[in-house]
C-alpha cells in the first residue's frame, strides 16, 4: 500500500515550470513562501549557491521583483557603508599627514543630516544606477555577441544586475568591503549572464570587464597618484 504513487496533491517541485521556464527563485515565489521568508531564502541561496539561484530565476515576466529585491539589498548596503565610513573614516584620516587630510574629504562621513538625506534618496539612486548599469552591460553583451542564444532580452540583464546586488553584503567587512563587493559582483555577474542569457563564460567576462576596465583603470591611476603623493609627503616629514 505504501508503495502506491499518489496521483493527487501538489506537482513535484523541480527547478523548471512549464515551457522550461524556471519556477522562480524564492523571492519570485514570495506569494507562496511569504515575503519575509522568500527574501531571506533568496538571499541565502544567492550567497551559498548562486548557480542554483540563477538557475531558478525566471528569464522574463516582470521587472518589479528584481527591482524591489535590489532596492532593499542595495539600501542595506548603503547603510552599512555609511556606518563604516563614519566609524573608520576619521581614524584612518588621522594617520595621514595634515596637508593631505584636506585633500581626502571623501574618507569621512558627512553630517548626520547628510547621512539621513542620502539614506532617503538611496532608492532613487539605486533605481537610476541599476537601469544605467544594466543598459551599459547590455550594450557590452551586444558588442561581444553574448545575446545570440538569449530569449531574456534586456530584462535578463536587468535581473542579473539586480540580483548581483547581493554582493553589497561584502561591505559588512570593514576597509576591504568595497574590494570584496567588486570581486563578488563580477563572479555573480558571470554566473547570472551565462545562466540567463546562455552566453559563454568568456563573453560574460568580456562584457563585464569592458566597463569595469575603464573604471578600474581610473581607480588604479588614482591610487598610484595618491600613493606617490603620500610617499612624497611622508618623505618630506621624515
Amino acid at each position: 500500500m505504501s508503495d502506491e504513487i499518489s496521483t493527487t496533491g501538489p506537482p513535484p517541485s523541480g527547478p523548471l515550470g512549464g515551457d522550461n521556464e524556471p519556477r522562480g527563485n524564492p523571492w519570485e515565489r514570495r506569494d507562496e513562501l511569504g515575503t519575509g521568508q522568500g527574501f531571506v531564502e533568496a538571499l541565502k541561496l544567492f550567497v551559498v549557491s548562486p548557480v542554483e539561484a540563477f538557475g531558478q530565476t525566471r528569464r522574463k515576466g516582470d521587472y518589479a521583483s528584481p527591482l524591489l529585491f535590489a532596492i532593499v539589498v542595495g539600501w542595506v548596503g548603503v547603510l552599512i557603508a555609511k556606518i563604516w565610513e563614519t566609524l573608520f573614516g576619521m581614524s584612518i584620516l588621522s594617520t595621514f599627514p595634515p596637508e593631505l587630510r584636506d585633500q581626502l574629504p571623501f574618507l569621512v562621513g558627512g553630517s548626520s543630516f547628510g547621512l539621513v538625506l542620502s539614506l532617503i534618496l538611496a532608492p532613487v539612486y539605486i533605481l537610476v544606477a541599476l537601469f544605467i548599469w544594466s543598459a551599459l552591460l547590455h550594450l557590452c553583451l551586444v558588442l561581444v555577441g553574448g545575446l545570440k542564444h538569449s530569449s531574456a532580452g534586456f530584462e535578463g540583464t536587468f535581473r542579473v544586475v539586480s540580483y548581483t546586488t547581493v554582493a553589497q553584503l561584502g561591505s559588512l567587512v570593514p576597509v576591504l568591503g568595497s574590494v570584496i563587493t567588486l570581486v563578488w559582483s563580477i563572479v555573480l555577474g558571470v554566473i547570472g549572464i551565462t545562466s540567463l542569457h546562455k552566453s559563454t563564460q568568456g563573453q560574460a567576462i568580456a562584457a563585464l570587464l569592458i566597463p569595469l576596465a575603464l573604471c578600474c583603470l581610473c581607480v588604479v591611476f588614482f591610487l598610484m597618484t595618491l600613493g606617490a603623493g603620500l610617499m612624497a609627503a611622508f618623505a618630506t616629514q621624515g
Binding site: K60, D62, V124, V128, F131, E155
Partner: peptide, 25 residues
C-alpha cells in the same frame, strides 16, 4: 501575458528613471 507585463514594466521603469534624472539634474 508575461511578455506584455514585461513591456509595461519596462516602459514605466524607463519613464521613472528619466523623471528621476530630471529631478536630480
Amino acid at each position: 501575458e508575461g511578455s506584455q507585463t514585461s513591456q509595461r514594466h519596462l516602459g514605466l521603469l524607463w519613464g521613472a528613471v528619466a523623471a528621476s534624472l530630471l529631478l536630480l539634474a
